[in-house]
Amino acid sequence: MIKLKGISKFYKPNIYALKDINLDIAPGEFISIVGQSGTGKTTLIRLVIAEEKPTEGQIVIGGWDITGIQTREIPFLRRQIGVVFQDFKLLKKKTVFENVAFALESCGTPKNKIINIIPQVLKIVGLEEKIDRYPTQLSGGEQQRVVIARSLVHKPRLLVADEPTGNLDSINTKEIIDLLKRINELGTTVVLVTHNREVVNNLRKRVITLDNGQIIGDQSKGRYLL
């Protein structure tokens, strides 16, 4: 699903965010990327969603070499990747329905399709009852579930979650992780970036540990090492 070959990213004058990253993620995998703050986890995600370009190396997503991706091609890549961030990035003046619909409207989806898709994704995240609520009327966990629902509207083969539980308490964290596991079971590859030890240890899935921009651990049923 994702192949990173000798990926390095440095910022001028000579600051390395990532150094010689080699990583192979198979379709349908659930992988956690862990590491302390500033170790390059988010940079790695930004490279995968073509928010940035690598200084060296090659990135292939689902057989598509996106190393030198053109600006006009990025939207097509993004439609294949669901992205969830720590800050929920929801529009406060729009309801749950409108927030999810906004993603589809922006990509030119017809209205009848939007009306069909939204209840389906909201059912997956368990928010079908709160379709008309505004973000401020939802808990942090529910808001994050709306974001996950929005990221699922294009039926992505890959879901990237960068610290999705960073702003949540332990109960909401568990709910979100369970949701990600469920999405993974439906066949979507999930890349979870976190520094939550408990989450990683409970998952018992593959764990990539980053330190100082380099991979220092890759365990198939790993634990939080640092």
């Binding site: 969603i49 600006t71 006009r72 990025i74 939207p75 097509f76 890549l77 993004r78 439609r79 294949q80 992205v83 990035k89 529009l91 906004f102 993603a103 922006s106 990509c107 030119g108 929005r150 990221s151 509207v153 294009h154």
Partner: peptide, 17 residues
């Protein structure tokens, strides 16, 4: 900026943005 950020994140075409 929030709407634009979301549009770009979910794959809205550049011309649409």
């Amino acid at each position: 900026r929030e709407e634009i950020g979301i549009m770009k994140l979910v794959g809205a075409s550049n011309s649409f943005v």
